[in-house]
Write a protein that binds this DNA or RNA. Structure first.
Lengths: 212, 212
DNA sequence: GTGCGATGTATCGGTCCGATACATCGCGGC
DNA sequence: GCCGCGATGTATCGGACCGATACATCGCAC
C-alpha cells in the first residue's frame, strides 16, 4: 500500500523523504494517521532496489572540500523511473482483496484521478460489497447476540452499524455519479464543510498531465 | 491491544483459540476485521509465558493408548490466572497514546463495563480530543490546499471530515451520559437498527460479576 | 463411502509502527 | 555574540499484527 502511495506521489513531482511524508499525510489524512519513518525509509530503499525510483543526492557543488568528518548528509531527492510508472499503472489497475479494506481503498481512491473509469467503478463496487458484508455481520450480532453483550459493547456495534450504512450510501452516490457523467462530487448535504459553494470541479478526464 | 482483548474475554469464560477468535470478532466487529491466527497464537503463547493465562489441554482421559503416531492434538483451553486479572485491571486503567487511536479506543470501549467511571470519562475525552485534532487537520487541508488537490482526493477529505464531526457528536453524548447518570445508550436517532425499542439497559454498575 | 464445510492448531515471511538517535538551520531572546 | 528551540531532515531497531499456508478431525449430506 505504501509502495503504491509513494509511486503515485512521486509521479506528481520528485521529493525527499520528509516532504513525501507531509504530502502523504495531507493526501491520506482522512483515512489514516501520519505514516511512520520506520515504514517510509525502508520502503524507499526497497523501491530503489527494485528500480522503480532513483536517488538524486543534493551535493552542494563544492563537496570535495570536506573529506570525511561532519560528512554533510544532504537531502536525498527521489524521482520515479519509467519502470516505476509502469509499476504504478499495474498496481492501480489490479485489485486484490486488500484493495477493499480501509487503508487499501483509501489509497486507491486518493489516486482515482489517475485511474480509468472502469477500474474506479470496480473498486467502488468491491468496497461497497465489503462494507455491506460488515454491516450484515453487525446486524446479525445486534439481532441475535444482543442479550449476551453489555450496554457499552452494544452501543459500539450500533455506532459501527450506522457508520457502515452511511458509507454504503456515500458509495452509492459515487457509483451513480461515476456511471453517468463525471465528477466525484456528492450532492451537498448542507452539513460539513461550509466552504466549496461553487468550486466547479474540473472534469477529471482519465489522467491528464502525463509528463512533468 | 490484542493482549488486553484476550485477557478481557478470558475473564468472562475459559476458551480455546478458535472460540476466542469468534468472540473477539463479535465483540470488536464494529472497529476492525477478524483477528488473524498469525497474531492470536503467538500472543497466547506470550501471555502464557508471562503467567497471565494457563493452558488446560483437553486430553480425552485415555491418552496413553496412542503413543506417537497421529498424536491426537486436542483442543487447548486457556484460562486466566489471578496475575492475569491484575494485569488486565492495570492495562484497562492506564491510558497511553495508543489508547486513543481507532483500534485502541475500540478495545478499551468494548470493555467499559469492566472499567470504572473516572477512567471511562478520561478515555472518552482523550478520544474526543484526538478526533478533534484530526478534524482540524482535515479542515486546514480543505481550506488551504483545496486547489492543489484533485476532485477525488477532495471528496475523500470531505467524507473523512464528516465522519470526524459525527464521531465527536457521538462522543459528546456519551460523555454527557457518563457525567450525569448511567447507561451508555445514546438517544435514538431513528436511523440504524430498528430493533431495541425498550431494551431497558441494565445499570452497568462498575464491574459486577467479578468471579466466574 | 466419500467428499466437503466447519472446527481446530500452528508457522512463516513481510509490512508497518513507535521509540529513538542524531545532525542542520533559522530565528528570537538575552 | 551566542544560546536554546522548534522545524527540517535521515535513519535504525524491536515488536505487533497480517495473509497465506499447512494440516488434522468431525459430522453430515449425497
Amino acid at each position: 500500500m505504501l509502495e503504491l502511495a509513494i509511486l503515485g506521489l512521486l509521479q506528481e513531482a520528485p521529493m525527499h523523504g520528509y516532504e513525501l511524508r507531509k504530502e502523504l499525510t495531507a493526501k491520506l489524512g482522512a483515512i489514516r494517521a501520519a505514516i511512520s519513518y520506520g515504514s517510509l525509509y525502508p520502503t524507499l530503499r526497497r523501491l530503489q532496489a527494485a528500480g522503480w525510483i532513483t536517488e538524486a543526492a543534493e551535493t552542494p557543488a563544492t563537496a570535495e572540500e570536506v573529506p570525511a568528518l561532519t560528512s554533510r548528509r544532504g537531502r536525498v531527492v527521489y524521482k520515479i523511473t519509467a519502470e516505476g510508472k509502469e509499476r504504478f499503472a499495474q498496481l492501480i489497475a489490479q485489485a486484490g482483496p486488500e484493495t477493499y479494506d480501509d487503508t487499501g481503498f483509501g489509497v486507491h481512491f486518493a489516486f482515482f484521478a489517475r485511474t480509468d473509469q472502469a477500474t474506479r467503478l470496480r473498486i467502488l463496487e468491491g468496497r461497497r460489497r465489503k462494507i455491506e458484508e460488515r454491516r450484515e455481520g453487525l446486524r446479525d450480532v445486534l439481532a441475535r447476540a444482543a442479550e449476551r453483550l453489555d450496554a457499552y459493547t452494544l452501543e459500539l456495534q450500533r455506532h459501527g452499524l450506522e457508520a457502515c450504512e452511511r458509507e454504503v450510501r456515500w458509495l452509492e452516490e459515487l457509483i451513480a455519479n461515476e456511471r453517468s457523467g463525471r465528477a466525484p462530487t456528492v450532492p451537498q448535504r448542507g452539513t460539513a464543510g461550509g466552504r466549496r459553494e461553487e468550486t466547479s470541479p474540473p472534469p477529471p478526464g482519465e489522467s491528464r498531465k502525463e509528463r512533468p
